[in-house]
Nucleic acid binder design. Structure first.
Lengths: 141, 141
DNA sequence: TATATACTTGACTAAATTAGTCAGGTTTAT
DNA sequence: ATAAACCTGACTAATTTAGTCAAGTATATA
């Protein structure tokens, strides 16, 4: 089980953005340089973040991205959701009709994966972008 | 982020095994049929479980597998560890020397992934095979 | 208004991982 | 003897990941 780069990058980029957000739009180029993430890849990621209204774009020179909401209101769930980085533990949900509907001996562990999903999502619900920025500034002070 | 089939199968198979463990060794063929998992794949999985001393094999006719310890003493961590289904959130740990050692602005989110790892592992530490078997028998009664 | 900066979009691809299959074994109860 | 069951290693198709590449559009500013 792993968290993929796309999800990590999205969070890293947004923390970076949030720290400079007060003043001007932040360009992907800057984020790319600071965080060491490919610019082209960042563009893909921000396209998704924009569609989910987590960031807003400002075109043209001196353009870039700004947060659509306050950092406190952006939860990790929102970010990871936006880039399709969901927690998937159950296969049987997809093919809902077959097996795993309580009758058969299959999916002895159905409840377990549900619990796990909740457990993880709970973590993501609690953490806001603001929490992460604070964690970081505290550490450097 | 997803839990792969190997991990799910390992847990499913062991819950199945644990339920019949009292009497005789349980053959992979039976587990394969009951849980709908390919026999060949189960053999790979059980090879790993055996190496980590979670199960013991009994060869020959009427052979199969038995738990090495009591179900209460087998935690989910142990199972998932055995089949290499660890929680991997951080890439930067691998290439330890580069970046992410506190100096650079990289890895603003380092602590976050650590926290997440702990959060998930905590869940796996608490759950024992016995818990899962009980959950299941309770449900059917 | 020319131009550089920066966002926008879609197609493409190499590498890695996953989820197995396949083909051969060896062991042992009956 | 023989069938049931474990044991091992090599192989592979499909999927996912982590990008790259190309060709734009929008706009601040000199």
């Amino acid at each position: 089980m792993k968290l993929t780069s796309k999800g990590r990058y999205a969070v890293m980029a947004l923390v970076d953005l949030a720290r400079f957000n007060n003043l001007n739009p932040v360009s992907l180029r800057d984020i790319s340089l600071r965080q060491g993430i490919s610019l082209d890849y960042l563009e893909q990621i921000f396209s998704k973040l924009r569609k989910k209204e987590i960031v807003q774009s400002v075109r043209g020179t001196q353009g870039g991205y700004v947060l659509s909401k306050k950092a406190k209101e952006i939860k990790l769930t929102n970010i990871l959701d936006a880039v399709d980085e969901k927690v998937k533990t159950l296969q049987c949900k997809k093919e809902s009709k077959k097996g795993c509907n309580g009758r058969s001996t299959k999916c002895l562990t159905h409840n377990l994966w549900d619990e796990l999903e909740n457990h993880i999502n709970n973590f993501f619900e609690k953490k806001s972008l603001d929490d992460l920025v604070k964690d970081n500034t505290e550490k450097r002070v």
